[in-house]
Design a protein around this nucleic acid. Structure first.
Lengths: 213, 213
DNA sequence: ATCGGTAAAAGTGTCGACACTTTGAGAGCA
DNA sequence: TGCTCTCAAAGTGTCGACACTTTTACCGAT
């Protein structure tokens, strides 16, 4: 058998396509024709097909009944569902994260939150936000949970990009409520109170539902 | 574009392979060579490849670094992780299920639990157990959550089959504790107390961790 | 009998081709 | 101008082939 399955063209195409979607270069609803992508990437259709299957299971593209593939768009109720799923996963992750939580973790999150307070645009704040949540999920140290979380992360990110496109972020200020929620979560994690950490995480995510739609 | 993506050979191979794995006909650790499967299913390698990719993302098979594909086996700690993930997903689903819960749902679950009490072998009980959890998850009416739950369900089922193989279930009696937990969950759902339903579900699943390893 | 080396067998990643289906662009008609 | 029908263009599902790599089975030497 050939090279490691991580360094093949199918995986490369998968990562590249995902980056193009979550960065907004590929707009929601765009048709993804296999011959076109194959030409663009300098490969045949086989690796492209594999990449599309992986992206579909990640929820970033959709196969229409006709067979066509398009970049997925997220309705308000779909985003609500995604956020509820995030609350479930990340709430459990926060609970589990207490097992291995260290002083370094606390310091890292404090730095992150401080940076959030100084953020001057929505894109930068979002990146910090995602990093913070990623840190907690990873610290849950549960491969199954992490694997379930990843699609949600990409869907979330793809939706955020769509939001940037609509609102020209001139009058931007970090939301005080989000910062407060992050501090509350960090406090629970640092003090080692799993139930409270879990609840803080879930409430924080579900609270965002008001503007996610 | 051709026939609906649900009625193609790739999907057929996916479903068929999954059935063979969760039914135990394909033992854990078995090598899944594409040419062999293609011959067995009377197709070329292309649909088989697609099916294997889907199965890998479902967590039922594993790609080794060498490129080989094998039916996944579950270690004790992996099962613990899977059960923790189930607790997260199903706990949230139970909470959400209260929105649409009806009298018919209550009746259906009562019937299910009554059948569990009369079950005479582990396989039958497991099927009822899975049905019950499936019912609750579906009633959560959250597509994202359901989609995340499916891989866990198949992994859970694949592991159960492995358990049957080991213990010849001669001296079988339904576990009183499981029945009690199911009744407690149903009570919370029927009475419309979301927080309690969620907690009942999570505790029930995490309690099983003692014998799952 | 065991061990090491060698060559054949089997397997994966990728490619191009073909049949069939859907899309849609343009011609013909009202 | 607007509508319908027809036919070409584009796309998907599937197949067989090829190059390269790993595995394995065999054979000889010790």
């Amino acid at each position: 058998m050939p090279r490691p399955r991580a360094a093949n063209q199918a995986t490369a195409a998968h990562l590249r396509l995902r980056r193009e979607i979550v960065s907004g270069r590929l707009q929601q609803g765009s048709a993804l024709g296999e011959p076109g992508l194959a030409r663009r990437y300098g490969t045949s259709r086989a690796p492209i097909r594999e990449a599309l299957i992986a992206l579909e299971r990640e929820g970033l593209v959709r196969f229409e009944k006709t067979g066509r593939t398009r970049v997925r768009s997220f309705s308000g109720s779909e985003m609500r569902e995604i956020m509820e799923a995030r609350a479930a996963i990340e709430g459990m992750a926060a609970r589990l994260a207490n097992r291995l939580w260290t002083e370094e973790d606390t310091v890292a999150l404090e730095k992150n939150i401080a940076a959030q307070e100084r953020a001057t645009d929505l894109a930068a704040l979002s990146r910090l936000d995602i990093d913070l949540h990623h840190h907690v999920v990873t610290r849950g140290d549960n491969a199954s949970l992490i694997r379930l979380w990843e699609p949600l992360r990409w869907q979330w990110e793809a939706h955020l990009v769509e939001i940037y496109r609509r609102q020209s972020g001139d009058d931007f200020v970090p939301e005080k409520e989000t910062i407060r929620a992050h501090r509350h979560l960090l406090k629970a994690l640092a003090e080692g109170t799993p139930a409270e950490a879990s609840e803080a995480m879930m409430n924080h995510i579900l609270f965002n539902l008001r503007w996610a739609r």
